[in-house]
């Protein structure tokens, strides 16, 4: 990669130099109104080879190999879990699953120093007293039909006596570059010309916790928690 970026910076440098030269020539050319044949020949040669080279280079880039089968589920996990059933969510989105035996009647749930956890949490009270807490973390990052869900780090969960501690792993912002297709092609595809492309990016997460029937759950500050009762 270092060699590549070295070549590229050279590439850009040459490119910028050509740009300045051309603009300078163009301005000068207004007065003289001609361009010498040899200069133009070279200019065209360089430009065309840059274009051809870049299309070859670009097609060799890994970006074009990222296509994977995108899980079929669309829509908001939260809504699905609340209105339908969590089972409706494609298992492909499952990031992590926990199953913890818990005997006590009371459970605190919180984060370190009560830091706010943005991931929505749904708590489902089961109709059995099986003394088992199970949790599933769903995550989704799909960018224009490419699935990047695996890149999202799952939250972590540990049981510390009677406190369930949720960790948000340190993860930098996902930097995403989105290319709008040229308008000359946009108009022939399904997309509308002036449409915003937000739906190209679909990102969400959900923590679904299932607790025994009689467990008293005490949620601490900093949680976006929702209870689902039968």
């Amino acid at each position: 990669m270092t060699i590549l970026s070295g070549i590229l910076s050279l590439f850009i440098l040459v490119f910028v130099a050509i740009g300045f030269f051309v603009i300078w020539r163009g301005l000068k050319g207004v007065k003289k109104s001609y361009v010498s044949k040899r200069y133009l020949k070279w200019l065209i040669r360089v430009y065309v080879s840059v274009l051809v080279l870049s299309i070859i280079w670009y097609s060799l880039l890994s970006v074009s190999n990222r296509i994977e089968d995108v899980p079929s589920t669309s829509g908001n996990f939260y809504d699905i879990a609340v209105n339908q059933s969590v089972d409706e969510i494609d298992p492909a989105f499952i990031g992590k699953q926990w199953s913890i035996d818990y005997e006590k009647n009371k459970l605190n749930i919180g984060t370190v120093d009560h830091e706010y956890l943005e991931t929505p949490i749904i708590v489902y009270r089961s109709d059995k007293n099986n003394r088992k807490i199970s949790a599933t973390y769903y995550k989704k990052l799909v960018v224009s039909e490419n699935d990047y869900s695996k890149e999202v780090k799952s939250i972590d969960l540990t049981l510390n006596q009677d406190r369930l501690l949720l960790y948000q792993p340190a993860q930098p912002d996902f930097k995403i570059v989105l290319f709008k297709k040229e308008f000359t092609i946009r108009q022939f595809t399904e997309e509308k010309l002036f449409e915003k492309r937000e739906e190209d990016v679909s990102a969400q997460s959900l923590l679904y916790i299932s607790i025994p029937k009689d467990l008293t759950l005490i949620a601490e500050d900093g949680l976006n928690i929702h209870y689902l009762d039968n």
Partner: peptide, 15 residues
């Protein structure tokens, strides 16, 4: 923040 996932999206176009 998209439900717990932080994104930074830049749009480009050759228009």
């Amino acid at each position: 923040n998209w439900g717990g996932i932080h994104l930074n999206i830049n749009y480009y176009s050759a228009d």
